[in-house]
Design a binder for these strands. Structure first.
Length: 986
RNA sequence: GCCGGAGUGGCGGAAUGGUAGACGCGCACGACUCAAAAUCGUGUCUCGCAAGGGGUGAGAGUUCAAGUCUCUCCUCCGGCACCA
């Protein structure tokens, strides 16, 4: 008799039973079991579970269940990241209390989550908007404040005019608000910050030992943006001032110091602000500068930071600064291409070797001084020791005949090279003079027009065999045009050396040979203009450092004229938000305006509830609360005022994984300080932290992970936690797209509703389909494919049917547990191994495929399948289809849950095959194959292969050059090629 | 521009340097059926009647053997981006 696989009934039944039995409640310690902390990012209570939530929670549940069966005490908690903007926006739009909106959503989503049948430990649930939770957030804030890690300062901040609030740098995308897409502007405000920059180095170095995907580590490294460089001080030449003033610049290219032709200050540079106010200042164009600064302030972030826009700036007239390397005076500019909040807010401009400076210098016609020369060194002719080193300045001339666009080149008679016209610079000659002289001597042409410098200088080092010397040549590449073909006769000596060849422009690449730098030169010629060389090379025009390589010169110049320093792109974490629905910053202001922490006994410092209008008007709606004002005055006295800003929700989520470990303590009446003093909390944290495996979305690669790591390190320094890093393993998951391959969105109408799918095919199918769609530990994008869902459902139905058949037919032969078919047994053990390993590696797709293969085999040989074999299969399937397997398990007469069973073990000896399929290759091509006992020797395999007719026909009349034998896999005959070709032709 | 990641059938995707396309979807044919659905079976990279040949974004290279390793290039996705 075949009963229907009624997923609705089965799933409901077991969900209720599991809850009733508290099956997944996780004690802190279980004797004989190791703890495992499996964490998934907690959801924001948006009001509806979408398919992404399923992907985030249901799929890792497979891993969690398997881990439990494998004997671990696994904590798999869940909660809600409940503060944040959408609640407030809903409040403004629909005139509902954000609290009510949020908690109703939570209640609804909890029900939806239950339908997932996940093995969450609900008893550890946390909600960040609960006073019992944010009391702890506030306490932790105060701890950081005590340590000097939370501070307030006036800062130019990213302001979203639509959300009416401050945004962290991380929340600005392309100069626009991440949430509402409005253009972000800059605004000066007093704001709270966390000093995450103090931890930059540790955030970087502690990552080394973490078992995280390399791409996440790299992303964090980029975000932290460490760069090692040098700071130089440029003295301000201010004849009337008695005090010595300096401007400090930061550079990673100390080797270019001699190429500085001006200095640039960011509009925010503090010296500038101060100097403009200084009546004695030498600056002659103060109002022009002030205008420029004001303009910058009015720019949006997107206008300011668009690298493609034209660079603008204003010279600060009346002052110069002195290059510490050579005492040269250079002008100073203010320009907004220099950022105020990185480095020192001032840069030394080296237009010859920095693209941005180059662009600016071109626009404002500032001098460009080459100090780094590209460096070529012919590996075929390296310097020879003990030979004289001769340095020469050289010019290479490209002479073009405008009539036919051909280039004059030399073909050398006694040397294997073809060149442009080349020659050394003598005495006091200029490059052009030297070139013209050489051209006349070598070619006879005397009427040439100098067009321009194409490139240079660059440096070439080689051993010149014809002169038996080591030669260093510093080369400039010049362009000339032939005015007419008038010629002088050239000396016999010159004539005997080389012949003149006019080469077509396009042929230059093929004609010029024997010089390393030819590609560089031809490229420069084709480009037709000098460009900025930002690479490394050797120094020129840098007295005392001539011809030293960039890398070495950086060290030497830094040591002599500056100081080595390290800078980070990472900026302090701005946490103030001018919003209602967040954790109140637990601070009050005294009559003098100074900030005071709220003493612990007043925590939680509650969000006021007497707010009527949540629409922000430049300050937090909390500022309108009467209740809060009265509360402050009552506790602290007249004249005291509350802090009205709330915290960035990233603060709430920076410690929620700790909250899960100690969720019972959150409710305690005992003060937090006291709780931390007794060992209870420490012990719980020791049981669970660090998180064993954390899975989440790629969108949190930077901010959330970095903030949490910072928070954890700060708490570690405070002695509150025992670990430096919170997450020992992290895996990012991919994204589920709509059936059309597009991101799901209501406007596109391609949203897949998980509730609907669960209703139709059941939670087990939906979950398993999501696991089957692709590897879980890669950040791919997978379209939801209804056909694919059907495939999984079919698979489960087949399991269901097979169960019935086994139940019916095996009822009398229950005792039979030995598999009689060794092939089946072999497959069973292989599958156990494969599924076990794949689950561990989050490769659920191939684990499922292995189970499908096993099921196919079980079905085709069902007469031989005993109950116990089928039960092993069921256990493998249990984490994937928890409801259905539980149902079958009980139908098989068990009374305990399948999820409390032990994970099947495989026997390595049973995986071993008796026979191997040996592939016979001729020259790497497969020609035949045969079955042979495992371990067959090379000689036996060779003998066997050679007797096969389909092999013999290839070996006929051929000489075997070599035989490659891969045990149990391949025997490859390598034949003499020539014979093979003859055969092919005939 | 820089830094990551990835390019394999009609589709999602498999392949410790060793039989490319497992598994699933789709499709085709067949069985069952009055019929359909469901189910089951067979086939399904491509050219070729076959023997064979070609095939993992393109091109070179290493190797007895390359989807896999090396180099050059192209495309897509993600992140960062005037960071000196």
């Amino acid at each position: 008799m075949n009963e229907k696989y009624d997923h609705k009934e089965i799933e409901k039944k077991w969900q209720e039973k599991w809850q009733e039995d508290n099956l997944y409640k996780t004690p802190d310690e279980v004797a004989g079991k190791n703890n495992f902390y499996a964490l998934v990012e907690f959801p924001y209570p948006s009001g509806n579970l979408h398919i992404g939530h399923w992907y985030a929670f249901a799929v890792p549940d497979i891993f969690v269940r398997a881990k439990r069966m494998q004997g671990f005490n696994v904590m798999f908690p869940i909660g809600f990241d409940a503060f944040g903007l959408p609640a407030e926006n809903a409040a403004i739009k629909n005139k509902v209390d954000p609290r009510k909106w949020t908690y109703e959503n939570i209640a609804y989503m909890e029900k939806q989550l239950q339908s997932m049948g996940n093995s969450f430990d609900w008893s550890r649930k946390v909600i960040t908007a609960d006073p019992e939770y944010y009391k702890w957030t506030q306490w932790l804030f105060l701890k950081l404040y005590e340590k000097g890690l939370a501070y307030k300062k006036k800062a130019s901040v990213n302001w979203c005019p639509s959300c009416n609030t401050v945004l962290a740098n991380e929340q600005v995308k392309d100069g626009k608000c991440e949430r509402c897409d409005s253009e972000v502007i800059q605004k000066d405000l007093e704001q709270w910050f966390f000093k995450i920059t103090d931890y930059a180095e540790r955030l970087l170095s502690d990552m080394e030992n973490l078992d995280w995907p390399e791409e996440i580590k790299t992303a964090q490294r980029n975000w932290i943006g460490k760069s090692e460089g040098t700071s130089f001080k440029f003295e301000i030449r201010n004849p009337k001032s008695e005090t010595k003033e300096e401007i400090e610049v930061f550079t990673t290219r100390a080797d270019t110091l001699f190429g500085v032709t001006y200095l640039v200050l960011a509009p925010e540079h503090p010296w500038l602000a101060q100097e403009i106010l200084n009546p004695k200042s030498e600056i002659r164009n103060k109002s022009e500068i002030q205008n420029y600064i004001n303009q910058t302030k009015n720019k949006t972030e997107i206008e300011r930071t668009d690298a493609k826009k034209d660079k603008t700036g204003v010279e600060i007239k009346g002052i110069k600064v002195v290059n510490p390397a050579n005492g040269e005076e250079v002008p100073v500019f203010v320009a907004d291409y220099v950022l105020g909040n990185y480095g020192t807010g001032a840069v030394m401009a080296v237009p010859a070797h920095d693209d941005r400076d180059f662009e600016f210098a071109k626009k404002y016609d500032l001098p460009i001084k080459n100090v780094i020369a590209p460096y070529f060194c012919d590996p075929a002719n390296p310097f020879r020791p003990n030979k004289e080193i001769i340095f020469r300045k050289v010019v290479h001339s490209i002479i073009i005949n405008p009539k036919n666009n051909k280039v004059l080149c030399l073909e050398w008679k006694n040397f294997p090279w073809n060149t442009f016209v080349i020659g050394g610079v003598e005495g006091e000659e200029t490059n052009v003079e030297a070139a013209l002289r050489e051209i006349k001597e070598e070619t006879g042409y005397k009427n040439l027009k100098f067009i321009k410098n194409l490139a240079g200088p660059f440096v070439n080092e080689f051993y010149a065999a014809h002169k038996d010397i080591n030669r260093i040549a510093q080369v400039d590449l010049l362009l000339f045009e032939l005015e007419n073909e008038e010629k002088e006769t050239i000396s016999d000596e010159e004539d005997s050396k080389h012949s003149l060849v006019w080469v077509d422009k396009k042929e230059l690449k093929n004609f010029i040979r024997g010089i390393d730098e030819k590609e560089y030169e031809i490229e420069a010629f084709e480009r037709g203009e000098e460009v900025c060389f930002t690479g490394e090379g050797v120094l020129v025009n840098s007295p005392g450092f001539e011809l030293i390589k960039s890398e070495e010169a950086r060290e030497k110049i830094a040591e002599k004229f500056g100081e080595k320093v390290t800078k980070y792109k990472l900026r302090d974490w701005l946490l103030s938000r001018q919003r209602y629905w967040g954790c109140p910053i637990p601070v009050v202001y005294g009559p003098d305006g100074k900030a005071h922490p709220i003493p612990e006994e007043h925590l939680p410092w509650l969000l006021p509830e007497d707010i009527k209008d949540f629409a922000p008007k430049g300050e937090s709606p909390i500022a309108t609360s009467k209740e809060l004002k009265e509360r402050v005055e009552k506790i602290f006295g007249k004249g005291w005022t509350p802090e009205c800003d709330t915290m960035d929700t990233f603060v709430d989520s920076s410690w929620y994984f700790i909250a899960y470990c100690i969720s019972a303590n959150l409710k305690s009446e005992i003060s937090i300080s006291k709780q931390f003093q007794n060992s209870e909390i420490q012990n719980k944290l020791k049981s669970w932290m660090p998180v064993s495996r954390y899975s989440g979305g790629a969108e949190h690669t930077n901010m959330h992970l970095l903030y949490s790591r910072f928070f954890h390190k700060a708490l570690f320094d405070l002695g509150l936690v025992n670990e430096v890093e919170p997450f020992s393993q992290r895996m990012n998951r991919g994204l589920i797209l709509g059936p059309d391959g597009q991101k799901m969105s209501k406007s596109k109408g391609n949203v897949v509703d998980p509730d609907e799918q669960v209703e139709k095919v059941g939670s087990d199918t939906v979950k398993m389909y999501l696991a089957f769609i692709g590897p879980y530990n890669e950040t791919g994008q997978y379209p939801w494919d209804l056909g694919g869902v059907v495939g999984i459902r079919r698979f489960l139905e087949r399991v269901w049917r097979l169960k019935s058949e086994i139940l019916n037919s095996k009822s009398e032969t229950n005792s039979k547990s030995e598999i009689q078919n060794s092939k089946l047994e072999n497959l069973l053990h292989k599958t156990i191994k494969k599924v076990t390993e794949d689950i561990q590696n989050y490769k659920f797709n191939t684990a499922i495929s292995a189970m499908m293969i096993l099921l196919n085999q079980l079905e085709s040989e069902k007469a031989q399948v005993g109950k116990s074999e089928f039960e092993i299969f069921l256990k493998l399937l249990a984490p994937f289809a928890p409801h259905m397997t539980e149902e079958i398990w009980h139908k098989f007469g068990h009374t305990k849950s399948i999820h409390l069973e032990e994970w099947p073990k495989y026997d390595e000896s049973k995986i071993k095959e008796e026979n191997a399929n040996i592939v016979v290759q001729i020259n790497g091509k497969i020609r035949a194959q045969f079955e042979a006992p495992v371990g067959i020797s090379e000689s036996d395999a060779k003998e066997k292969a050679e007797t096969m007719p389909e092999v013999q026909k290839w070996l006929e009349n051929k000489e075997i050059k070599k035989v490659i034998f891969v045990p149990n896999k391949i025997i490859n005959f390598v034949l003499k090629q020539t014979v093979g070709i003859d055969k092919l032709i005939s």
